[in-house]
């Protein structure tokens, strides 16, 4: 009897904890959604501030994601396949932006690319200004979001059974062909979900962007920055942009889930 009571108490505690986690994560979103009406969305989605922020956020996040994929994929592959002095240091460096406060990242980028920064002062001489431009938004997004993709790619390449790669080579396949036709397709699911998470992180980036790129509407004011600006003015604009971000985030998470289930090869 005592054992049965113990089992039920255990189940009760477990269920309560799960309920607390669910409420903690969902109540803020419910509070946000309760403030939204179709009229509010119809009024504010066409709003110029919202449109500009939405367009800028999506284009910069796509560009950031593309740059991270193009450079991060081969970099992660070479890193996972080679042994060199300082490899664990490079591992730490790749992961660093995950734990570094974004404001610190923004300040560091400013000290590097700012008009009097380490590189910025030389770029300034030849007429290139990076800080407080749309390009600065992209650099800030790349800095904070790249670990989401590179870590994933690195782990996938390390876990992939080497016999596929070795077989391809014994069949006469060049390293490039093996990478393009064997390794990439076999890692495609994980790489895609890593890329989507990178896009999502870039889309939500705030701290580094405001420090390094500023908050200029149409140039550097992404959606999270527009929410911050609207909080001091039109609260309904802030709510509209927030709801749009929630909708995009949910769509991203659903896509990742569907892709990982659909594209799983029987490896």
């Amino acid at each position: 009897m005592r054992q049965i009571i113990g089992i039920w108490v255990g189940r009760g505690v477990g269920a309560s904890l799960i309920l607390i986690v669910c409420l903690f994560l969902s109540l803020p979103l419910i509070a946000l959604l309760l403030r939204v009406t179709p009229e509010l969305l119809a009024t504010y989605i066409p709003n110029e501030t919202v449109q500009k922020a939405l367009w800028l956020s999506i284009t910069t996040s796509i560009i950031s994601m593309a740059i991270v994929i193009l450079i991060g994929t081969p970099a992660a592959y070479f890193h996972s396949r080679s042994y060199y002095p300082g490899k664990s240091f490079v591992d730490t460096l790749i992961d660093l932006p995950l734990v570094l406060p974004p404001a610190v990242a923004g300040l560091a980028l400013l000290l590097l690319f700012g008009r009097t920064g380490l590189l910025g002062k030389y770029l300034n001489v030849i007429g290139i200004d990076i800080a407080f431009t749309t390009f600065a938004v992209i650099l800030a997004q790349i800095f904070v979001s790249s670990p989401f993709y590179i870590r994933q790619a690195k782990a996938l390449f390390e876990q992939l059974d080497p016999s596929y790669e070795e077989t391809a080579k014994t069949l006469g396949s060049s390293s490039l062909r093996t990478f393009l036709f064997i390794i990439l397709p076999l890692c495609a699911t994980g790489l895609t979900s890593g890329a989507i998470m990178t896009f999502a992180r870039a889309l939500g980036e705030f701290g580094a962007t405001i420090m390094f790129a500023g908050n200029l509407p149409g140039i550097t004011q992404t959606m999270p920055l527009a929410i911050y600006a609207a909080m001091q003015g039109d609260f309904d604009v802030a709510i509209t942009i927030s709801v749009l971000l929630v909708a995009i985030s949910l769509a991203i998470m659903l896509t990742v889930k569907l892709l990982t289930e659909k594209w799983r090869y029987n490896v």
């Binding site: 016999s163 596929y164 070795e166 391809a168 064997i182 397709p185 076999l186 090869y265």
Partner: peptide, 10 residues
Amino acid sequence: VFQNAAVFPH
């Protein structure tokens, strides 16, 4: 031919 055959599953 490897022990696991290593056919390319995709």
